[in-house]
Design a protein around this nucleic acid. Structure first.
Lengths: 156, 156
DNA sequence: CAAAAGCCGTATGTGTTGCATACAAATATC
DNA sequence: GATATTTGTATGCAACACATACGGCTTTTG
């Protein structure tokens, strides 16, 4: 501890504003914080259901397209094949989803919801409603549309 | 396999549009996808530097406010105390950050960048520039401002 | 047709993060 | 001075992202 300003030299200066000004211009930074806040609220909202964002997304998509293959899932959710498998494994262990061989392409697995899975999804839809209301409460409808449009431009 | 539409009954219907229409209205869903896309590009951009978003954020903030305590960090980045500790541990192991006891409050640790940490941050700033350019390329300046404003309304 | 190439699911391991809990030390509050 | 509260720390657990490797199946190509 010598040539640079070592610890103990003095404590933090007055925090001034909460964040350094240059960080404020970083879109990715705000995106991360916003995502974190939404993630946190989502987790609270779904504590009782014990479901994560990804799990709900998978249930949702499989319900919308029964027989969907895992690769299709990974493409739509922009996730790794291995990650999708882990998620499907968990959902399968909990009896929400079943895998079956495709009659058309022997490589593919067809995914279907079980009745338990459909029940879970129904509950999840209600919870999503509350969660989205919380999120949208701070925006006008036009702003919500604008935000979605801007975010959609980021993911393909 | 019996009372519900079991597997093998038939494969996925024509994918129609890529996503179910109802998912399109979910702000959180788009936020997650956008965050994922940005996260992925960030990781690529920082592969050589071997730094994560959080690690860069911590370096950035500690540089801006030398002597910052970990609690202050966790507040500014909206992360758990335990999570911040894990990140600081890693940065410390790599010799980018040093902990020191606060002279003012014996409970607090003062954080400082080492020269290596400052060098890493300098490189990181360049990489962030490229990363942000990639991100902002799809927006006008006004849209960037609007997006930041909307995202800021989500995190406090 | 047979071989090569590609796709899909699977298995395994590593690293990062978020969260809960518990504990010790220092400080603040009453 | 006794009792909270704050701060950092230590551990463990769950979820993910990613890389790699492998076997089974399909498509392409020679």
């Amino acid at each position: 501890m010598s040539e640079w300003d070592g610890p103990g030299a003095g404590d933090a200066p007055p925090p001034a504003s909460n964040l350094p000004a240059d960080l404020d211009g970083i879109v990715g930074f705000h995106l991360r914080l916003a995502h974190g806040a939404v993630y946190r609220h989502f987790t609270e909202t779904f504590a009782a259901l014990n479901l994560t964002q990804k799990q709900v997304s998978v249930l949702w998509l499989v319900a919308a397209e029964p027989g969907l293959a895992q690769t299709a899932l990974s493409a739509r959710l922009q996730m790794d094949r291995a990650t999708v498998m882990a998620i499907v494994n968990r959902l399968q262990d909990r009896g929400f989803v079943v895998r079956g061989k495709s009659a058309v392409d022997g490589r593919k697995q067809t995914l279907h919801l079980t009745p338990a899975g459909q029940a879970a999804l129904a509950e999840a839809r209600t919870a999503i409603g509350a969660h989205e209301d919380w999120l949208k409460a701070r925006f006008t409808r036009a702003e919500v549309r604008k935000l979605i449009e801007l975010l959609a431009r980021i993911h393909g």
